[in-house]
Amino acid sequence: MSGLNLNHVTKQFGNFTAVNDVNLSVPDGTFVCLLGPSGCGKTTLMRMIAGLDLPTGGSIQLGGADITQVPTHKRDLGMVFQSLALFPHLTVGENIAYSLRIRGTPKDIQKKRVDELLAMIHLPGFADRSVAKLSGGQRQRVAIARALAISPKLFLLDEPLSALDAKLREAMQVELRQLQQRLGITTIVVTHDQREAMTMADTVVVMNGGEIRQAAAPVDIYRRPADSFVADFIGQTNLLPVAADSAGRASVLGELVEGIALPAGAAKGMLSVRPEDVQLTAPGHGAIAGTVTFIRDLGGAIETFVEAGGTQVIAVSSPRNRPDVSVGQSVGIRLDPATSVVLAR
């Protein structure tokens, strides 16, 4: 099997399990984002893929070969560190050429490749500059070029854009994705920013507490979250309690809702409804009754906060469909079964 495969990969630091039984298959040429809150084990997992940490359990395969015990320098990968780790004593060109020099590549070929890579990262003519004199975005690009100099099989980036300001970060996300598609290189990026993950990834891997909670395409992660953690972590959502009566009819916040079914045998569950899928109507006629408590007009979107059965429900609408409600007004909430996801409790 080609691509990258993680089988039951586990890492323990003493009694603490930082990564727990991770299974993941990354086909050649895909872009994967490891996404999760701080401390969930993303960096640890990436360091094991790079060989900088050895797993305490499980195995890692790259291109069909078991690389679990192969030392880092024989793994044929490129990595961009969170701190970038550019060599301060080398120029931009020498930094990029480092992996070629280590392998004894002739000087003229090194120079040709450096020029090629500098053109690729839109910094032509920067070879003789000192890395200390570059801006944040330029340093970022140099680190990427250095990691790609030998055209590795696998490209790893640990929170590569976190040091950049918001505007530059968005631009770099698009650039990185386009670069990856042009080179067709298998890429794994660690991030804690879900927008970043949604922008770049073919597959988003959501982690929490050292475990993978869901691995799927960005749209699927958003539309069909596997559990309430994923639903809550990716974008905004309303998590509403669902109860089923003896006949199996489901009610949300005390109101029967047609078309929603709990798994057979379950009496209780959670319903994840995205704010843009919540419809506000007149009260009654089978709608969930609630009271508007707050309205936030963000210009591009209007958020209406509704209190219903002790739970806060947020509805988002575009200015075109501005709901005709005011604070204190009684409203009805309608849920569309097609866009609501039933989750285990």
Binding site: T72, R75, I102, A147
Partner: peptide, 23 residues
């Protein structure tokens, strides 16, 4: 992370020491 970066770029730990730490 400087030596770790050198290792991901293909330098053995000893080579990383001489090409990164010492310079």
């Amino acid at each position: 992370t400087l030596t770790e970066a050198a290792r991901t770029l293909g330098a053995s730990p000893v080579k990383a020491f001489f090409t990164v730490v010492v310079p």
